[in-house]
Each structure stands twice: as C-alpha cells, then as structure tokens.
C-alpha cells in the first residue's frame, strides 16, 4: 500500500494505466513473466500428453491399428506401450526445463541446498 500511494499522487487521480515497467514494483514484472512461461510450458506438455494418450490411444486407435509394426497394430501399441514412454519423457523434460527457467529467474533453490549442508 505504501508503495502505491506516491504513484497515485503523481498521476493526479487518474486510474493507473496498464502498468509501465518503471511504475510496477520491482517484484511483479518477473513474477508474471516467470508464471506465464511456466504455464506455457505446462500447456504444451499437457497437449502432447493428451494427443498421445487420448488421441492416439483411444480416439484414433482404430484407424491407427491398420498400420502394423513388429506385430503391433500401431494404435494398440500407443495405448499399451508408447503412451507410457511418452509420459516418462514428458515429466523429465518438464523437470529439466523448469530447472533452466528457475535458474534464469534466480528462483532456484541453490541457497537452500547450500544451507542444508
């Protein structure tokens, strides 16, 4: 609250316009950016999650079953093997990319780990 009051005075009672970077407290800019990048990554990975499992394994299983590889009808393979491999990879990719994101924004838990030692 105390931080906002001087701002309002300089603008003479106008409603604050979509906050320009210098006006926002130093905190909030990176927070929004970090969170929206996290959400974007999440949505992309969940889209892959849905396409591989519900898409290939259930909704499109019948047409895909016409393709047979190494004895496996392809839809059947996605449903009983492929989707599980993809799930494992998705979580790994998420963990790795979030490491990088945390690092970029300086919110990784380095200090905590060092303090733990």
């Amino acid at each position: 609250m105390t931080e906002v009051t001087p701002d309002k005075e300089t603008r003479g009672g106008e409603p604050p316009p979509s906050a320009p970077p210098p006006a926002s407290p130093p905190d909030n800019g990176w927070r929004k950016e970090y969170w929206s990048r996290n959400l974007r990554l999440m949505v992309i990975l969940l889209a892959i999650w849905f396409i591989v499992s519900f898409g290939f394994g259930i909704l499109l299983v019948e047409p895909l079953n016409n393709i047979v590889i190494a004895g496996f009808p392809l839809g059947f393979w996605f449903a009983q093997q492929g989707s599980i491999y993809v799930f494992v990879i998705l979580i790994f990719v998420y963990a790795k990319l979030m490491d990088r994101l945390d690092n970029q924004f300086g919110v990784d838990e380095q200090e905590i780990q060092e303090a733990g030692k």
Partner: peptide, 9 residues
C-alpha cells in the same frame, strides 16, 4: 508459485 525467493541475476 516460485520455488525460492528471488536472488539477483
């Protein structure tokens, strides 16, 4: 939403 408090980057 943020794993740790922010340090200078």
């Amino acid at each position: 939403r943020y794993p740790a408090s922010r340090r200078e980057v």
